[in-house]
C-alpha cells in the first residue's frame, strides 16, 4: 500500500513509517481491510485481467493465445461495432434532451403551489424503482405493431399504425422514449432538489425589477440549475452507454442491427461467440468513450464539480 504524502527526510523513510504506524489508529487498518481485499479481488484484478485480454484471443475453454494488437485493429474496422456506437449515440441524442426538457418542465410545475404534489411525484418516480425487465417486457407489448396499445389508440384516432420496434429507422428512438419514461422520475426529483435550493429572495428581487416569469426562469433558475443539469446529463450519458437489457429483451439488436448497443455487442461477443479478448477490447473502448464524452460535457457546461 502506498502511504499518502510522506516526505523523505531524516530519519529514514522506514523509521518514519514505523513512527507513523505507532501513532495511528490500529482499528483503521482492520476496518478498511474488507475494502482493500474487495478492491484487490473485484476491481484491481479484473481490471488488469481485462487489460491483458485486450491483447489475447481466448474462448475460456482453450488456452489463451497472445495476438498483439489484432483485437484493436479489428475493432477499428469492425463495421458492426461502429454501428453499435452510432446506435448508442442516436439513442443519447433523443434520450438526453427529452429527459431534460420533460424532467425540468414537470419539476418546475411541481415546485409551484400544487396540490397532491406527493402523488404526482410518486407517479413519475414509480417506473424508476421497477426492474428494467418488467419495463421492457411491458413496453414490448405496448409497442407491438399489430395489437399494441399505442397502435390501438392511433388507429382509433384514425392514424395508421407505427412499426415501433420493427422499422430500422424508428426502433432505437422507440427504445429511447421508453428509457426516458423509465428514468425521468429520478431526474424530476433531482431537479426538484435543485429548485428548492434556489433562494426565494432572488425571485422576489427580480420581480421587483420587473422581470416576468419567463425572464426569471432563464436568468435565475437555469444558471443556478446548471450543476444539476450537468449531473443529469452525465448520469444519463453513463446510463445510456450501458444500454443493454432493453434491446436484449425487445429486439435482440434488430431490425437491421438498428438497436444493437455497444454492451449488447460486447455480451454477444463474450457469451455467444466466446471471443473474450475482443469483448474486453470493446469494454475498454466503451470506457474510453464514456470518459471522453463526459469530459466534453463538463467542459461545455463549464462546471468543475457537478456536486
Amino acid at each position: 500500500m502506498k502511504e499518502a504524502a510522506v516526505e523523505e527526510r531524516q530519519p529514514s523513510y522506514l523509521a518514519r513509517l514505523r513512527m507513523e504506524y505507532r501513532s495511528s489508529d490500529k482499528a483503521g487498518y482492520i476496518m478498511v481491510l474488507p475494502y482493500v481485499l474487495h478492491f484487490l479481488v473485484f476491481v484491481a484484478y479484473p481490471l488488469v485481467f481485462a487489460f491483458i485480454l485486450v491483447f489475447c484471443k481466448w474462448d475460456i475453454v482453450s488456452p489463451m493465445e497472445f495476438v498483439g494488437l489484432r483485437n484493436i485493429q479489428r475493432l477499428m474496422r469492425d463495421t458492426t461495432f461502429w454501428t453499435a456506437v452510432t446506435n448508442t449515440l442516436k439513442f443519447l441524442a433523443l434520450h438526453i434532451p427529452l429527459q431534460i426538457v420533460f424532467a425540468l418542465l414537470i419539476a418546475v410545475v411541481l415546485n409551484g403551489p400544487i396540490k397532491l404534489r406527493g402523488f404526482f411525484r410518486g407517479a413519475f418516480f414509480l417506473p424508476f424503482v421497477i426492474s428494467g425487465a418488467v419495463v421492457t417486457i411491458l413496453w414490448q407489448q405496448l409497442y407491438s405493431t399489430d395489437a399494441g396499445v399505442f397502435n390501438l389508440i392511433l388507429t382509433k384516432l384514425g392514424a395508421s399504425p407505427v412499426p415501433w420496434l420493427t422499422d430500422p429507422s424508428i426502433a432505437i428512438y422507440s427504445i429511447a422514449v421508453m428509457a426516458t419514461w423509465k428514468n425521468v422520475g429520478f431526474y424530476i426529483v433531482l431537479f426538484l432538489a435543485g429548485l428548492q435550493n434556489v433562494p426565494r429572495e432572488l425571485y422576489e428581487a427580480a420581480s421587483i425589477d420587473g422581470a416576468n416569469r419567463g425572464e426569471q426562469f432563464w436568468k435565475i433558475t437555469m444558471p443556478l440549475l446548471r450543476p444539476v443539469t450537468l449531473l443529469v446529463i452525465m448520469l444519463s450519458t453513463i446510463g445510456g452507454f450501458g444500454l443493454f437489457i432493453e434491446p436484449f429483451v425487445m429486439t435482440g439488436g434488430g431490425p437491421a442491427e438498428s438497436t444493437l448497443s455497444v454492451v449488447l455487442y460486447l455480451y454477444k461477443n463474450a457469451f455467444q461467440f466466446l471471443k473474450m479478448g475482443y469483448a474486453a477490447t470493446i469494454g475498454f473502448a466503451l470506457a474510453l468513450m464514456i470518459f471522453l464524452v463526459t469530459l466534453v460535457q463538463r467542459k461545455l457546461l463549464d462546471v468543475e464539480q457537478p456536486y
Binding site: 473485484f42 481490471l47 481485462a50 450501458g242 474486453a280 469494454g283
Partner: peptide, 14 residues
C-alpha cells in the same frame, strides 16, 4: 468512475 461493463468479462472468469 469505472464502468461496470469493463470488468464484466474478467469478473465472470474469476
Amino acid at each position: 468512475m469505472i464502468p461496470g461493463q469493463l470488468t464484466l468479462i474478467p469478473m465472470y472468469v474469476l
